[in-house]
Design a protein around this nucleic acid. Sequence first.
DNA 1: TAACCTTATGCACAGCCTTGCAAAGCTGCT
DNA 2: AGCAGCTTTGCAAGGCTGTGCATAAGGTTA
Lengths: 338, 338
Amino acid sequence: MAIVKAKPKKSSVSAIRVAELAGVSRSAVSRTFTDGASVSPATRTKVLAAAEKLGYHVNHLARGLIHHRSGIVCLIVAEMQAPFQANVVETTTRKLQAIGKVVMVLNTAGQPENVEAALRQTLNYRAEATVVVSGAPPLSLIETCIENGQRVILINRDDAITGPEFVLVENENAAREACLLLHRAGCRNLAVVSSTAGTSSIMAREQSFVAAAAELGLTAQVSRAGPTGYATGAEGARQLLGASNRPDGVFCVTDLLALGFMDVARQEFRLAIPDDLCVVGFDDIPEAGWLAYNLTTFRQPIGAIADHIASIIEKDEPEPAPPKRLPTQVAWRKSVRP
Amino acid sequence: MAIVKAKPKKSSVSAIRVAELAGVSRSAVSRTFTDGASVSPATRTKVLAAAEKLGYHVNHLARGLIHHRSGIVCLIVAEMQAPFQANVVETTTRKLQAIGKVVMVLNTAGQPENVEAALRQTLNYRAEATVVVSGAPPLSLIETCIENGQRVILINRDDAITGPEFVLVENENAAREACLLLHRAGCRNLAVVSSTAGTSSIMAREQSFVAAAAELGLTAQVSRAGPTGYATGAEGARQLLGASNRPDGVFCVTDLLALGFMDVARQEFRLAIPDDLCVVGFDDIPEAGWLAYNLTTFRQPIGAIADHIASIIEKDEPEPAPPKRLPTQVAWRKSVRP
DNA sequence: TAACCTTATGCACAGCCTTGCAAAGCTGCT
DNA sequence: AGCAGCTTTGCAAGGCTGTGCATAAGGTTA
């Protein structure tokens, strides 16, 4: 007689088992766990006791199958270890959970082609909504998502597409204000530290700053030494500060760039901030407030962004709305002369 | 006649619709999307064409219902905007996606009581595995998860429970080595900057350092000025450096603590690092490598941790294994005299 | 052409849940 | 007791997929 290794199967307990234990019908246990369903207190307690004993938990997969509402919201994000993205993910997951959703995170690992695979996953899991924090999703798939009843929300992206909803920050105003701010501090040789990422919000900040400088009769140099991050800011400092016409006022389109820039300016060029050089950042990541930096920067209203995402997802009729533009706010610190 | 607003219903397209369009049975389309199923090339192409046209995507909710494998892995995490946690989440999501899983993030928002709700969600969505990055899950729920066939993995937590799998870092060895390292650098007045969080790994680091100091005949002061973070490190510096017996060698159980400590040491106490004061951190978050800090620290092998998580989840028979202890590695920088 | 084998296809059921509908039970009143 | 009105409960269908089993189709060989 051969030894047959019984497959454990570990079948998770389903409603029928608790119905048997409680001595009621399957429907009764279903109703016990459905808000607003009609169950007598007596059976309710019987069911709850049986459920507790067996460790029963409603299967949201099956529930989603019926309701056509999985309760899942997908977050598509790249570089989620970067401070700004990490904060967006943290805040968004928190607020979405508060309205009863559950968040699936799809990490595109920096590969743009993975955005497509990620969108496929949102369709596979019948997500109610997809929030694209970073990356450029192919238009055709966005349409498929919307046709399947998904809400699609793009953050800090300014494409001229209709269908998805947009929530973005007023990059142009902020960049313009950054320019004025540096000008008021007496800076006359301006520069902007950007990156090769080329996302729409970064381009907007960069170009608006250059335009604002031109309006003041100044030309702003632009440095794009690599991807958006600390190292690129550092390299930008080496480029700009090592050249002959060294700038005295710098706008970094991202705090991370600014921090790298400041470190090199101080350590390798022995410059004092803000005395020799004023620096303005963008995002207001926690690190910008650290004593070593004290960076004056434009705060992205992450809380408001997440609130708006939640409000879009919460309303059940997708009414077309214009892009939501949220204002930034200056976090005044010490990297710019007053 | 009343105007009845037709509920859009937006029912996402299901296999039967593509079967009709392709002129085949529903089974055929199911088989087309099942690896290793027997379908003729002719019908396969017909089905694929129809699916493409309709924007069909297999419903993983229904698929999971049958297979008892949802493909979902839950990550329970608090403070996910903190650099270390953010890196863990990034790496883990990436590696889990690489083995075909999809990650659901449950943010406990720092409230320990939310861990329980999060575990409930993992059961509701029939997650294949639950990874607890931070927080202390109630034992009874862990058991329920395991009974329902889930794999439960606890990170950097050292409870004497059987059932879940543990992957943790050799905190004791590292703390001990940190002590030796400071001693070799000539530090004789030691201190450790910790937090009030009281998690097992932080306690282990703190206590092992103190014990190692005692073995060298030294007593190490301990500062716990608040939750684990930059501000607490800063406050710890004010406490320790403002007192009479100012330490000359400090072990911070977390890089974030170390950075706050360094900033206050330098800016408010005008101390030079490493000349007046040596500092050792733990984690090796990206910020530790920034020029302003150059912090010597113990690197947590996040990649190896994530690899091990993935390997646990990938094997289908949950074989009991002893806790996986991964070694740390010193990232030598400039905050300790050589 | 018949027999046989391989491959492909369709049927029907299972998996877990919700819910409309009708039957049953209960309460209160005459 | 008898009836109306209400609440509770069970039945069965429906939502979407995977798959065992039987059947049909197609190909090969004698």
